[in-house]
Simulated assay, not measured.
Amino acid sequence: MNPPASQYTLQQKVFLFLLAIVTIGFGWILMPYAGAVFWGVVLAILFIPLYRRLLRATGQKANLAALLTLASIVVMVIIPVALISASLVQQAVGIYNMVGSGHIDFGQYFRQIIAVLPDWVVSLLERFDLTSMATLQQKLSSFAAQASQVAAKYTLNLASNTFDFLVSMTIMLYLLFFLLRDGHSLAGRIRTAVPLSRKYKQRLFSNFTTVIRATVKGNVLVAMAQGALGGLIFWILHVQAPLLWAVVMAFLSLLPAIGAAIVWAPVAVYFLVTGAVWQGVVLILFCVFVIGLVDNVLRPILVGKDTKLPDYVVLLSTVGGMALFGLNGFVIGPVVAALFVASWDLFSTAEEFHQE
Rank of each mutant, 00 (worst) to 15 (best):
Ser6Glu: 12
Gln12His: 09
Gln12Glu: 15
Lys13His: 10
Val14Leu: 13
Phe17Ser: 11
Leu19Phe: 08
Leu19Thr: 14
Ala20Trp: 12
Ile21Val: 15
Val22Trp: 04
Thr23Gln: 05
Phe26Trp: 08
Gly27Trp: 14
Leu30Ala: 15
Phe38Glu: 04
Phe38Ala: 07
Trp39Leu: 08
Leu46Lys: 03
Leu46Arg: 05
Ile48Pro: 00
Tyr51Ala: 00
Gly59Ser: 07
Gln60Ser: 15
Gln60Ile: 01
Lys61Pro: 00
Leu64Phe: 09
Ala65Ile: 03
Leu68Ser: 11
Leu68Glu: 13
Leu70Trp: 06
Ile79Gln: 04
Val81Pro: 00
Ala82Gly: 12
Leu83Tyr: 07
Ser85Leu: 12
Gln91Asn: 10
Ala92Arg: 14
Asn97Cys: 04
Val99Pro: 00
Ser101Arg: 07
Ser101Trp: 02
Gly102Gln: 10
His103Leu: 12
His103Cys: 00
Ile104Pro: 11
Gly107Lys: 10
Tyr109Thr: 11
Phe110Ser: 09
Arg111Val: 13
Arg111Asp: 14
Arg111Gly: 10
Ile113Met: 13
Trp120Gln: 10
Val122Tyr: 05
Ser123Phe: 09
Leu125Trp: 10
Arg127Phe: 10
Thr131Gly: 07
Thr135Met: 15
Gln138Phe: 07
Ala144Tyr: 06
Ala145Met: 06
Ser148Ala: 13
Ala151Tyr: 12
Thr155Phe: 09
Ser160Arg: 13
Asn161Val: 05
Phe165Asn: 12
Leu166Arg: 06
Met172Cys: 13
Leu175Cys: 07
Leu180Thr: 02
Asp182Gln: 06
Gly183Arg: 03
His184Tyr: 11
Ser185Cys: 09
Ile190Glu: 08
Arg198Trp: 09
Arg198Gln: 13
Lys201Met: 01
Gln202Asn: 15
Gln202Phe: 07
Phe205Arg: 10
Ile212Cys: 15
Ile212Asp: 12
Thr215Glu: 11
Lys217Asp: 11
Asn219Pro: 00
Leu221Ile: 13
Met224Leu: 15
Gln226Trp: 10
Ala228Asn: 04
Leu229Tyr: 04
Leu229Ser: 04
Gly230Asn: 01
Gly231Phe: 04
Leu232Trp: 05
Phe234Ala: 09
His238Tyr: 09
Val239Asp: 11
Ala241Met: 03
Leu243Val: 02
Trp245Met: 05
Ala246Trp: 05
Ala246Arg: 01
Val247His: 02
Val248Pro: 01
Ser253Gly: 13
Leu254Arg: 12
Gly259Asp: 06
Ala261Glu: 07
Ile262Phe: 09
Val263Cys: 06
Trp264Gln: 01
Pro266Thr: 08
Val267Asn: 00
Phe271Met: 05
Phe271Ser: 01
Gly275Ser: 12
Val277Gly: 04
Val277Ser: 05
Val281Asp: 03
Val282Lys: 03
Leu285Asn: 08
Phe289Lys: 05
Ile291Phe: 01
Gly292Arg: 03
Gly292Ala: 05
Leu293Val: 13
Val294Tyr: 11
Val297Ala: 09
Val297Arg: 05
Ile301Gln: 14
Thr307Ser: 15
Leu309Gly: 10
Asp311Met: 00
Tyr312Met: 06
Tyr312Gln: 06
Ser317Glu: 11
Val319Leu: 15
Val319Arg: 11
Gly321Arg: 01
Met322Ile: 14
Ala323Gly: 10
Ala323Leu: 15
Leu324Pro: 00
Asn328Cys: 00
Gly329Tyr: 01
Val331Arg: 06
Val335Ala: 10
Ala338Ile: 06
Phe340Asp: 04
Ala342Arg: 00
Ala342Gln: 01
Ala342His: 04
Trp344Cys: 12
Thr349Gly: 08
Glu352Gln: 08
Glu356His: 09
